[in-house]
Amino acid sequence: MIRILIADDQALLRAGFRALLNAEPDMEVVGESGTGRETVRLAGSLHPDVILMDIRMPDGDGLDAARQILRDPALAGTHIIILTTFELDEYIVQAVRVGAAGFLVKDTEPEELLRAVRVVTEGDALLSPSVARRLMTAMAAIAPRPARGPELAAITGREREVLALVGEGLNNAEIAQRLFITPLTAKTHVSRIMTKLAARDRAQLVVMAYESGLVQPGTNN
């Protein structure tokens, strides 16, 4: 059972998400919050698998709440999906840096929301190629590429190839197809890269791929 916490200051939106998620046999909404502070408190007591987090909330916004939650070792198994109007601004970039697993627009299709919850729970990719490109473009506009990106000496040449494709937003099956390997092998590569680079999830790998120069804003698939 995937345990979900909904954090949004719009009660009507929370009610809609709750009805949709609770109708699934493998999902359960265990809590709701309308403020950042309450979200942090509930996350600490409920230990949800997934938090649907509005990035702008009163009494401590979603970004601050995400930062507090994701730096808590007791919540290492909690994944955060940012709910946004899809304005990729500095707050969205910071959300990825602190460890948010990905993004959903608030008017997303129901099946896409359900898929996203299952995807992040499994540790797979949530960022689509278009989202990854927009994220990198936003990062480039907000802050130039660091003079020195993340140290990649720990990963192999093949792992660099895989990291670049993760940076483009490809999932394991798409990486496997591109590199002529099995999806299981692709998943293994991604897991090893995350371990070696101390990345929490694939969203952080996208940032690392950009900062290391493996991918550029505007990269095409």
Rank of each mutant, 00 (worst) to 15 (best):
I6D: 01
I6L: 02
A11F: 09
A11Y: 11
N22S: 09
E24A: 10
M27H: 13
M27K: 09
G31A: 07
R41S: 02
G44F: 09
P48C: 01
D49Q: 03
I51K: 08
L52Q: 04
M53S: 05
R56F: 12
L63W: 11
D64T: 15
D64Q: 13
D64H: 15
R67W: 12
R71P: 09
P73M: 00
A74I: 01
A74L: 03
L75T: 03
G77A: 00
T78Y: 03
T84H: 12
D89K: 15
I92Y: 12
A95L: 06
V98G: 02
A100H: 12
A101K: 06
F103Q: 06
P110F: 12
E112Y: 13
R118M: 01
V119I: 11
A125N: 05
L126T: 11
L127T: 12
S130K: 14
R134V: 06
T137C: 05
A140Q: 14
A143W: 10
R145A: 03
A153G: 12
R158G: 08
R158F: 11
E159S: 07
V162C: 03
G167W: 08
E168F: 09
L170I: 09
Q177R: 15
F180R: 13
P183Y: 07
A186R: 11
K187G: 10
T195Q: 10
D201V: 01
A203G: 14
L205K: 03
M208N: 06
G213I: 03
Q216C: 04
T219E: 05
T219A: 13
N220P: 09
